[in-house]
Design a protein around this nucleic acid. Structure first.
Lengths: 218, 218
DNA sequence: AGATTTGCCTACTGGTGCGTAACCCTACGC
DNA sequence: GCGTAGGGTTACGCACCAGTAGGCAAATCT
C-alpha cells in the first residue's frame, strides 16, 4: 500500500528571520544554564527544535553565536534604559527612571539576561565585549554625577567620578543578580532600594560631605 | 664509556605538601587566565613543573582541583578580613578596616583572586560554593548595619537589610574588579573611595533618611 | 512545467583533553 | 644491603563535541 509519499512534515518550514530568533532564544537559554563552554551546539539546536547544521548556516560558529546573543540582549537592555532616562531631567529623576527600567528589564528576562552577563564576565573572548558595554554605562552614570556636581559649582577629579560610578554600577548589577535569584521579588521595589543606597550616598558626596580615615591605630 | 648511571635529576623531588602548593599556584594562575573549561590539566601541570598524573594523584579531578583553589583563596581572603575587623569596634571603623583588608588582599593577589572569582560566578558546579561565601559576607555586613541601627533604636526588616548589604558587597566587588584591572591603583585609596560611597549612603539610611519615588508621571 | 532557491536533515571526521595503566627511580627504615 | 613507600614519568584509551559533506523536499520563480 502506498504510504503518504511525503510525510506531512510535522514540523513546519519557517522563514529564516523567525528561525534565527528561535535559535537565539534557545542559545540564550542554554548558554545561561550551562555556561559557554559546557553548552553544546547540539543542545541548543535541539532546544530550538532544529538540527545543528541550521545553526551553523544561520548564525555561524559557537563564538559567533554567543556574540550574537550578547548583542541582542545587550541592545535590548540599552534601549530599555535609554528610552527611560531623557537627558534633560534632573539627575535624581534620571537615575530613578534608569534604575526602574533596568530592573524591569532584568525582571522580565531573568534567566536570559543576568546569567548571560554572569557568563560573559569570565570567558576571555567576550570579556572585552561586555566590558565595553559596562564602560558605556559607567560613563553615563559618571556624566550624570558630574552634571549634578557642576550644577552645584563643585568639581571632582575624573578618576574619582569614575570610581564612584563604577561602584554604583557594581551595586546595581549585584542587586540584579539578587533579583534574578529571587523570582518573587518585585523589580520596582528593588529599584527603590537601590535608589536609596545610591542616591543618598552619592547625594552626600554631591554636597561635599566626605569620609576620611581619622585616627586609625591599626 | 659510562654515562652517569642516574642522570642527576635536574628537577628535584619535593615533599607532597610543597608540590601541592605549587600545583595550586599554577592552577589558580591558569584557571584565572583561561577560565575553568578552557584551562587544560596539561597546562596546569606544565606550569607547576610537574606531569599530569601527579596532579591527579594529589588533588584529584579537574573539578576537585578548582574547588581546592576556591577554598584556599577564599579562606585566605576571609582570614585577611576577619583578622582586621574585631566585633567590638564601632561600625564605621569595622567597615573601614574590613574594606582596607579586602582591597589590600585583592591588590596583593591581583591576577589570582579577582579573576578566580570572575570565573566561579559563571560555572554551574561552583556558583553555589561562591554564593555561600558571598552570603557569609552579606550576613556580616547586614549584621553590622543591624547592630548600628539598633544602637540608634531603629529597626529595619531583614530583607531590607539583606538587600542593602547585597548592594554594598556588590559595589565592593565591582571596585575590586576595577582595582584588579588598574595595576597601578592604590588599594587603600580605593578602600577610602568605597568607604565614602558605602558609609555615607548607609549612614543616611541609618539616620532614617530615605528616598521615595515622589511624583513620577512616567 | 521545469528550474532554482531556500529550509532542513542524517551522518560523518577530526581534534582536543580528561583521566588512567603501567612502569621507573631514589630515599629511607631496619 | 634490601624492601617498601613515595615522588615521578610516558603513553595511551575514550568520550565528547565543534564543525562539515552531501543530499532531499517544499516553496517560489519563469
Amino acid at each position: 500500500m502506498l504510504a503518504r509519499v511525503s510525510t506531512p512534515p510535522a514540523f513546519k518550514r519557517l522563514p529564516r528571520a523567525v528561525r534565527e530568533q528561535q535559535m537565539l532564544d534557545a542559545a540564550v537559554k542554554v548558554f545561561s544554564k550551562r555556561g559557554f563552554h559546557a553548552a553544546s551546539m547540539d543542545e541548543i539546536a535541539e532546544d530550538a527544535g532544529i538540527s545543528k547544521p541550521m545553526v551553523y548556516a544561520y548564525l555561524g560558529t559557537k563564538e559567533e553565536l554567543f556574540v550574537a546573543c550578547l548583542h541582542r540582549e545587550g541592545t535590548r537592555m540599552m534601549q530599555a534604559i535609554a528610552g527611560a532616562a531623557a537627558p534633560d531631567l534632573p539627575a535624581d529623576v534620571r537615575l530613578w527612571r534608569g534604575l526602574k527600567a533596568f530592573f524591569g528589564f532584568v525582571g522580565a528576562h531573568r534567566d536570559g539576561w543576568a546569567v548571560l552577563y554572569r557568563q560573559a564576565r569570565g570567558e576571555q573572548p567576550f570579556a572585552g565585549e561586555l566590558a565595553a558595554m559596562r564602560a558605556r554605562l559607567v560613563e553615563v552614570v559618571a556624566g550624570m554625577l558630574d552634571h549634578a556636581l557642576r550644577a552645584e559649582g563643585r568639581e571632582v577629579s575624573a578618576v574619582d567620578l569614575e570610581v564612584v560610578a563604577y561602584a554604583l554600577v557594581g551595586a546595581t548589577e549585584s542587586l540584579a543578580d539578587w533579583l534574578a535569584d529571587h523570582p518573587d521579588a518585585d523589580p520596582e521595589k528593588t529599584a527603590t532600594r537601590m535608589m536609596n543606597v545610591a542616591w543618598l550616598g552619592a547625594g552626600q558626596l554631591l554636597h561635599g560631605v566626605t569620609w576620611h580615615p581619622q585616627q586609625d591605630p591599626a
